[in-house]
Amino acid sequence: MFRTTVNRIPLRSTFSQSILRPQTALRFLSSETKNAIESAVNSAKVVLFMKGTPQQPQCGFSRATIQMLGQQGVDPEKFAAYNVLEDQELREGIKEYSQWPTIPQLYVDKEFVGGCDIVMSMAQSGELTELLEKHDALIPEEPYDEAEPEKAADAEVKPRSRD
């Protein structure tokens, strides 16, 4: 069974290397595999099943997808990536689980979003930003402009407090 600890962006994938298994596709997901995948899907707001790691993607589609998530400004604290190449059971199991034949696969808030093509067209149309914002998965904006409004607010309050 693979471990289901969370692997965040700068770390390695969380599915541990398991013993080699026969490469037959799982026709039905074992409940163990299903549970392990469910906890992976639940492990962060944004979960990517990919080939390789965010630092070293092993496939152009996984690379493109991770780059798009980076460009969107996904908060590393709210992100987990799982390397399907480290675990044959995960690699086949995730296809069954999502009913989706290819890797990478993106989940946001436990919902399957799609693969590379879909993520790319959503990125182009702005839907991806919208989705990630809606689920509060982006790095908060730097409060560059807040210094001045705060002063202004102070200025309003102070004169009143004198009376």
Binding site: Q99, W100, P101, T102, G114, G115, I118
Partner: peptide
């Protein structure tokens, strides 16, 4: 989009 991809994936399951 997701539904469209699923339609294609289903129709070409073996091939994909």
């Amino acid at each position: 989009k997701l539904m469209r991809h699923r339609i294609v994936n289903k129709a070409l399951e073996q091939e994909i």
